[in-house]
């Protein structure tokens, strides 16, 4: 049984915290994404051939959205749980009658909500710079929500695992950003020479970018079902890890 009132309290408080710093939280990613659009979409994109039947500027939108979404969601969520641990305010959560369900829905739900707001703002910004339309808008929203939820969970694990600020930043910097860059944000993987096009398929981000691109333009590097399946698997693995963390109290309870 889930204590909804507790869950709602956590969710609301996290969102209020986000709104308190809304300007920074939104401005930085929007600015970076816009720069990418200007450089890759408008400047370089003009000299690029169409990819999978869409102009280069439009082609990179799902990838850029994914790039920002993964980075921001992970860092939002990891900070959300790391800071209370760091400052000691987590005592209240640990002494409250809430379990893994309330904590997850509250924290991760809030992190995912922030990501959705961010995604919406980025898409609107992109629309000002590049002309594009979305083939499967409903699926796109669902898919963005799934990815946001999955990476909020991932960030949550990161925030519990990290015992200093360096560790908090190192996973996104060392793995997430490079894998996203190599994951087909700026190119279609069949543009890669042998054997890199095969090796690229071991990069899980390829499936995420490709999945989102499919919802936008109806064509992509890999089958949408596969993308969806991998996203769901990742989500399930994260939930299992977090359930285990709560069961053992690892890094939470002394």
């Amino acid at each position: 049984m889930i204590a909804w009132r507790s869950t709602w309290s956590i969710y609301k408080r996290e969102l209020v915290r986000f709104l308190r710093t809304a300007f920074q939280s939104v401005l930085a990613p929007v600015l970076t994404t816009s720069l990418y659009f200007i450089v890759f979409g408008a400047a370089i994109g003009g000299r690029m051939p169409d990819l999978s039947g869409v102009g280069y500027g439009s082609f990179i939108i799902p990838g850029l959205l994914m790039l920002t979404l993964l980075g921001e969601t992970t860092s939002n969520s990891s900070f959300g749980i790391y800071m209370p641990r760091f400052t000691g305010t987590i005592y209240e959560l640990l002494s409250a009658p809430v379990g893994v369900a309330e904590t997850l829905i509250g924290f991760v739900g809030a992190a995912a909500t922030k990501s959705l707001i961010l995604a919406a703002i980025i898409l609107v910004t992109a629309r000002l710079l590049v002309d594009y339309s979305i083939a499967h808008p409903l699926l796109a929203v669902v898919y963005i929500m799934l990815v946001a939820a999955a990476f909020s969970l991932f960030g949550f694990i990161l925030g519990i695992w990290a015992d200093n600020f360096e560790k908090l930043g190192i996973i996104p910097m060392l793995f997430l950003t490079p894998l996203t860059f190599l994951g087909g944000t700026f190119y279609s993987i069949d543009m890669l020479p042998e054997p890199w096009d095969k090796i690229a398929l071991f990069n899980p981000i390829v499936y995420l970018v490709s999945g989102l691109r499919w919802t936008f333009y109806g064509s992509a590097d890999v089958n949408f079902g596969l993308s969806l399946g991998i996203t769901l698997c990742f989500l399930a693995v994260c939930v299992a890890i977090i359930a285990y963390i709560f069961k053992t109290g690892w890094r939470l309870r002394a």
Partner: peptide
């Protein structure tokens, strides 16, 4: 950073 009353109301909600 939280105002007093919000912090206290949050605690009440958190405990259900």
């Amino acid at each position: 950073f939280e105002p007093v009353i919000r912090a206290v109301s949050y605690s009440r909600g958190l405990f259900g």
